[in-house]
């Protein structure tokens, strides 16, 4: 399978990268891990005249230090997340990184790539949504930040402007004060696009019983990863446990907007939202208690 012909540039810093993109306009595509872009180019789903390889832009691999609000450079890989995000208190993101594609794909696939490809089933997108993450964008006219929820606007669509580069994803500063988890359902145990996924984040009150804050994000059950606000509402202020989790799971299922496709029916997906949400909540809650302790 052949790639179409294109020109290639590997800028050494951000301003050079932005300059190249600005110059080429919509004829250019930034290249991160390549696991989506190169496939889409081969399949003819994407065309471009210039590929701008971001690998040389060092700040795209930056990570926040200990004690800082978490910030993850766009070029950090899924494999890196699987290994390191847990240590940053972001277990849900680590789990999502660990079940994305195959080991080879995880070694290449990046946070930025997953966000910009914006698949409804994007594992990292869904996990970041649950962490109330914002994306940092740089363009010719400066930087801006957007919540992931506003960044992903449709299947394969984002709010990134022509010439902009996604620099980093920033989970909410308080994300590490809670616990998170990611659940994914596919046919096989690995190498799967999610049929349904659920990412949750919960925070405990000091009493170790009451849910202080929560976010539930759902993958592959809408045109974008969805935030199930009603599920969070069903949790906050209530004692954590079977009852609250069941209510949240039910609310999440109602919030889902699945469709029928060849992978599964809308109805089954909706049911699975409840199952995965409940399972993710159980795991996230025990992590929330550790974070509180």
């Amino acid at each position: 399978m052949l790639l179409p012909r294109f020109d290639y540039q590997r800028p050494r810093d951000l301003s050079e990268a932005l300059g190249l993109l600005a110059q080429a306009g919509d004829q250019a595509r930034p290249l991160a891990g390549g696991t989506d872009l190169l496939v889409n180019l081969k399949l003819g789903k994407v065309t471009c005249r210039l590929v701008v390889d971001l690998d040389g832009v060092a700040e795209l691999k930056d990570v926040s230090g200990p004690g800082e609000a978490p910030s993850l450079g766009a070029l950090l890989s899924a494999a890196w997340l699987a290994k390191q995000a847990g240590g940053l208190g972001l277990m849900g993101l680590a789990e999502a990184g660990g079940v994305l594609g195959s080991p080879q794909v995880r070694n290449r696939a990046t946070i930025g790539g997953n966000l910009c490809t914006a698949r409804p089933a994007g594992d990292l997108c869904t996990a970041l949504l649950a962490l109330d993450a914002r994306v940092v964008l740089a363009g010719a006219s400066g930087r801006r930040e957007l919540p992931v929820e506003q960044f992903i606007t449709g299947p394969g669509l984002t709010a990134i402007a022509p010439g902009e580069i996604l620099l980093a994803a920033r989970p909410a500063p308080g994300a590490t004060a809670g616990g998170s988890a990611f659940e994914k359902l596919g046919l096989r145990r690995t190498m799967e696009i999610a049929l349904v996924s659920a990412a949750v984040w919960v925070q405990s009150e000091a009493d170790g019983r009451t849910v202080k804050a929560a976010r539930v994000a759902l993958g592959a059950v809408g045109p974008t990863p969805l935030l199930a606000r009603a599920a969070a509402t069903a949790l906050v202020g209530r004692p954590a446990g079977t009852e609250a989790f069941a209510a949240a799971a039910q609310a999440a299922a109602e919030a889902a907007r699945p469709i029928d496709d060849h992978r599964g029916s809308a109805e089954y997906r909706r049911q699975m939202v409840a199952v995965l949400t409940r399972r993710a909540l159980e795991r996230a809650w025990s992590r929330a208690l550790e974070a509180t302790a």
Partner: peptide, 19 residues
């Protein structure tokens, strides 16, 4: 098509030679 690049496995069909 797995090969090792700096010790890590990659699918060499999804890596540009120049990368």
């Amino acid at each position: 098509c797995t090969v090792l690049v700096d010790g890590q496995t990659v699918n060499s069909c999804l890596v540009l030679a120049t990368q």
